[in-house]
Design a protein around this nucleic acid. Structure first.
Lengths: 343, 343
DNA sequence: GTGGGAGCTGTGAGCGCTAACTTGGCACTA
DNA sequence: TAGTGCCAAGTTAGCGCTCACAGCTCCCAC
């Protein structure tokens, strides 16, 4: 306790302190802070100087309380260790920052509807203004669709779940391109290592593959199913190597393709001379697999950015031009594919 | 505008609404919400029922304003697209949630001190109670050290920067193990593909490698330097393949090892028969490289968890047992190494 | 009885900010 | 000179919550 009646306590300065130092009212300080008009330049300068001198920081809780805006968005992610979700999160965060929002994240371990609901509730309790859900499992999407939520929400993933604004990649298209490319090279048919059955991306890629085969009159082989991991791709590869008549494989992601490559190598099958392999995602490492992997590139960062754009549009009352955004993937040709019979 | 004077407006219920419905004062509602003692069971039940009926959610801004606690922690990450940072973020988020905190993230694109300062300031403006910095560059660490910040802060990365609480991996130790293992196998020396010179992890791994060679009296070859990417490992690999007398290479991470493997393969050098290769990290895919990669495993999730533990300890006034936590990495043996002369 | 300590609940103030309104001054017009 | 309008401030009232402090009831010891 200082001798001065004002005290010299060691507490954070508040707006009133700035006002006193600058010789104005707290409201004028607020005006300066918020860029309101009708403040004389020299008054503004005095206020700014006082702010600097005291190292004053506005209290965000107080502001949020009165404006009812937290400037914070929530992101629910499934497994942010995976390359895809991590990249989307990164894209979302960057876009959010440049739009003036903070980003609060929460990860899901389990993918049932209840845990999605819980995650969104948690975020909502924190006061987020909107939520992006990165949860591309069918269960999660349907959970999102019937989410009893008063918070604006955008999903990123695949699916034609029109109840919820959504941005996704043209998985069906990309898978079709990959499959078509292999058929064009003379392969009689194309085998498929699919992702988990409950992921929308798996379903769409599988469908794209299947429809393309059917359209070309090619036989549709039984699907091998993995879980996105290299390990599961390896196991699928061992089974495929045992089949004997396989000349082309389309994997639903690059990690599984890596495992497949490994299994084929161990089984003494040469890629691409015996078997051509195509992946999906184009992770940065795909160009350095043995052999370099032909794959379908999707821009995860862009996906995240577009999702955020959609959400911010909704929040700030801009008419939602489209609530279903689709981003086209693009084939990247590398040495893991060859025409049939090429040796 | 209802006929009732109370109105039937469509606004979020507040504590007073719950209190009125339950026939108690707002303070009693608060007590129930915060688990305070001296509330009669049936009163508590009435309040709980009212909360459920109105779907009441406490306003976190109001609570934060009065308690001066936001229940939010900040994370500054460098490139959350990379496997390491993404995994740490994941570990941090999970640990934070179970400790009752929210997590707000912000990504750095550039790594100079100023942008670290900005990121921390931004988080602080948002009202976070503490910050974890995942920024393993020397520049970032020194920036953190002299950060003019009134927020508790923990760094995760390497280094002996004792001014800041820090949790890191025994990079020197791990690199020494890897190098020693290769020497034990009869290799005359071990080449090294290092990470960026300004990353602490690079520096420590390089030092571990160098000291081990020197201790064994082995010659210390010139270092090849990459940037963690498979691409840079590939380029280093091309150079190493041109050297001719190399029999063992230790790469500072698995992605560069992947590129190296690719380059050696293209150059017609067999791994492990001509050249043994060891990586660092043990990313999930390392077991499926061609050949499967011997590497040094570090548990990123654990790293994140420990960092958060340290931070929460600091926040909640627990005596900081240790402010410098070190986690031991562990070698994982796979087929990319062989004794010298083995064929 | 009556004082007093528990157990339970209510009252009032105030966290730091913004929104809405009010006030005072000055220039320009009629 | 009075009236109008605009600019540049100041004043007041909350936002929804928690904290500190009263009360009130009940029960038991003396």
């Amino acid at each position: 306790m200082g001798t001065d009646s004002a005290g010299t306590e060691q507490r954070q300065p508040v707006m009133a302190d700035v006002a006193k130092l600058a010789g104005v009212s707290h409201q004028t300080v607020s005006r300066v802070l918020n860029g309101a008009p009708h403040v004389r330049p020299d008054t503004r300068d005095r206020v700014l100087a006082a702010i600097r001198e005291l190292d004053y920081r506005p209290n965000s809780a107080a502001r949020a309380l009165v404006t009812r805006r937290s400037q914070t968005l929530g992101v629910v992610s499934f497994d942010s260790t995976l390359y895809g979700p991590a990249s989307m999160l990164d894209g979302i965060e960057r876009a959010a920052r440049s739009a003036g929002y903070f980003v609060s994240v929460t990860s899901l371990r389990s993918l049932d509807g209840r845990s999605v609901q819980e995650a969104v509730d948690r975020l909502r309790d924190q006061g987020v203004e909107g939520v992006v859900v990165i949860a591309p499992q069918t269960s999660a999407v349907s959970a999102v669709a019937r989410l009893s939520s008063s918070v604006p929400l955008v999903a990123v993933g695949s699916g034609n779940q029109t109840q919820v604004p959504m941005v996704s990649v043209g998985n069906r298209y990309g898978a079709g391109e990959a499959t078509g490319h292999l058929l064009d090279l003379g392969h009689r048919t194309v085998h498929h290592v699919a992702g988990p059955a409950n992921w929308l991306e798996s379903q769409d890629r599988e469908e794209g593959w299947r429809l393309t085969l059917q359209a070309a009159g090619a036989p549709v082989p039984e699907v091998e199913r993995g879980d996105w991991s290299a390990r599961s791709g390896y196991q699928a590869g061992l089974r495929i190597a045992g089949l004997g008549d396989v000349t082309a494989v389309f994997c639903a992601n690059d990690h599984m393709a890596l495992g497949l490559l490994r299994a084929l190598h161990e089984a003494g099958r040469s890629v691409p001379y015996d078997i051509s392999v195509v992946g999906f995602d184009d992770i940065p490492e795909a160009a350095y697999f043995t052999p370099p992997l032909t794959t379908v590139r999707q821009d995860f960062g862009e996906l995240g950015r577009r999702a955020l754009e959609l959400l911010v549009g909704e929040l700030e009352g801009v008419a939602p031009a489209e609530t279903q955004v689709q981003i086209a993937p693009e084939m990247v040709l590398r040495r893991s594919v060859a025409p049939i019979g090429h040796r």
